[in-house]
Simulated assay, not measured.
Amino acid sequence: MRRTALTALTLVTALVAASPALAIQQDTDGDQITLSDTFKRHQEYRRYQALGVAPEQRLIEFVHAPLCNVDSRFLEPGIDGNCEPPNGTVNLPGCGDDEPVEPLWRRTRTSPDAEWTRWDQYIGWICPDDLLPPFTEQDFRSLTIASPEAHRQPATGDVLVNKPLIVYTEPDVERRFRTSLFGYGIDVVATPLEYTWDFGDGTELTTTSPGAPYPSFELTHDYRAPGAATVTLTTSWEGQYRVDEDPDGEWRDIDGTAVTTVALDPFEVVELRTRLTDGRR
């Protein structure tokens, strides 16, 4: 994959000196998912970039440039204004086949008539993938994933003791979603990873196969005693996501799984007994 670095020395602007707080996600246990400072700052840059404020009214400005000029206190030619002294050699990150994104510089002023502050490096050299939103297990589990249908054979009525009950679900299931996160459009694909059948008698069967109907006996269960039972299918899902603003269009694995559950109608497990007769009515 290949990604072009943002154009050097392209001035981008926006209004307001303070940005709104960035929402913090929470996982299913209530623990906070901490976003990196780099991603938060890039989000601020994106918000300001979208405002389109007239130059004379700007209270904040951003610019992409390699670094402060190491021989002076000024940015490289093409940008006016002082900058903070450089902090020494800047090492470029290894980004695989991607081009690293040039550092982002920022300056502010308190009013349109005030002096600008020095340019300050807001984000250093960064790999483009690090500027895309993280799609977490919590985000994945927040999607409404429809469970695959569960089936049994015999499909209706009682089930006999010591006779195989066949179970199966839909093959080749895939669920697609269109969602957004932090203002980025995102496509998500969920596919079954594992199936767990609970037969209601204390027995479970976990498999990666969806099974198949009769005459297949791939997934079966024999009940050993009469009684009421319910078959429940729990499906574990893995997912991938793709961010609109990723020029590579790369599908990325979601770290974690989602789970769905569906139950069949209850039924009775019965035992048939044979009786000897003399053939007379």
Rank of each mutant, 00 (worst) to 15 (best):
R281I: 15
L233N: 03
G183C: 08
H42L: 05
T34N: 09
L205Q: 11
V270A: 11
T108D: 07
P164Q: 11
G96Q: 04
I254F: 02
L67W: 14
W105H: 02
P226D: 14
K40H: 05
T191N: 09
T179M: 05
A21G: 15
D246G: 03
Q153V: 07
R275S: 14
D248M: 02
C95T: 13
S147Q: 04
A225L: 06
K40T: 06
D80S: 14
S142P: 08
V173M: 12
N162C: 07
L160R: 12
G239N: 06
L75F: 09
L92G: 01
D246K: 01
R242M: 15
D265G: 03
T169L: 00
W116E: 06
D98L: 04
T13M: 05
L51V: 13
T108W: 04
R46V: 15
W116T: 06
P103H: 06
D27R: 08
E149I: 13
T234W: 05
T208K: 13
T28K: 09
L165T: 12
E268C: 08
C127Q: 01
Q121G: 09
D37V: 01
H42M: 08
T28R: 12
T220K: 06
T230S: 09
G249E: 09
T28Y: 10
E149K: 14
D97I: 01
Q138R: 13
S236W: 14
D113S: 14
Q25A: 15
R46D: 09
A263H: 01
A17P: 06
R2N: 00
W119P: 03
V173H: 08
R106Q: 15
E268H: 13
D255Q: 14
H151E: 13
D253R: 10
G88F: 02
D172V: 10
D98N: 11
